[in-house]
């Protein structure tokens, strides 16, 4: 479980998060909606200690994040915008192995995890492919596989659809939904809620660094007016 308790954070004296409290359970699929600059990215980067709150606490599975960054970062897999800049190796398999190698696992265990992660994003057998030769959608899926190879309890994604066409977007979404169904908590930040709402358990919306909506999609959608979020039409 990821838990925020009255978290505030300022950058250059400008408040970016103000008194944010929320929690995300294992196996829950949560959407984080809000306009650019509403604080989504800053919130996500608190989940694994890339940022530390000015006040308040963030806990992962009960432990404050800054007490054990390795535990937090292996429990919370993170996928950023621009997957192209997140790869550390030129080939798919070597890149996915990077995280497990950092945990000091045995080579056989690393190989097993690479295979499992590739299977989870529907890319079995592609470990020797060159990353630069992949399509945008495939690159996004490899980035997700790289996070999954850490066997995290949660997966946090920041606008992973930037630059993807609709079919690629849909195939990534379907993978996320099936991961959530298998028990991984998913927190997905996006300003585009088209065809994701029916997959999600909950929608959290932000404005000016505050959580303004938190509830099931059916209830939440009506409250999203004025947040510069694309919502399903009709």
């Amino acid at each position: 479980m990821i838990e925020f308790r009255s978290v505030s954070y300022a950058f250059d004296d400008v408040p970016v998060l103000e008194d944010v409290s929320l929690s995300i359970d294992d196996g829950e699929f949560v959407l984080l909606a809000g306009a650019n600059g509403s604080g989504k990215t800053t919130l996500l980067r608190h989940c694994n200690g890339l940022l530390t709150p000015d006040s308040g606490t963030v806990r992962v599975d009960g432990t404050p994040v800054e007490d054990d960054l390795i535990a937090a970062r292996s429990s919370v897999g993170m996928v950023f915008q621009h997957p192209r800049d997140q790869f550390v190796s030129a080939t798919v398999g070597a890149d996915i192995a990077f995280g497990p190698e950092n945990l000091g696992l045995e080579r056989t265990e690393i190989d097993r995890r690479v295979d499992a992660a590739l299977a989870a994003v529907n890319m079995t057998g592609r470990e020797d492919d060159r990353i630069d030769a992949l399509s945008g959608g495939e690159q996004s899926r490899v980035a997700i596989a790289g996070a999954l190879a850490m066997e995290p309890t949660h997966l946090v994604l920041d606008e992973p659809f930037t630059g993807l066409d609709d079919p690629a977007r849909r195939s990534v979404l379907e993978r996320l939904a099936s991961l959530a169904a298998d028990g991984t908590g998913v927190l997905l930040a996006t300003h585009d809620l088209r065809d994701v709402c029916e997959l999600a358990d909950r929608v959290i919306a932000m404005r000016d660094g505050r959580v303004v909506v938190d509830g099931p999609p059916a209830n939440a959608l009506g409250d999203l007016d004025g947040l510069e979020v694309r919502v399903p039409s009709g």
Partner: peptide, 12 residues
Amino acid sequence: RLSLALQARCFA
């Protein structure tokens, strides 16, 4: 951006 990805993946 690469640096964030390295941190998130426990660069050791």
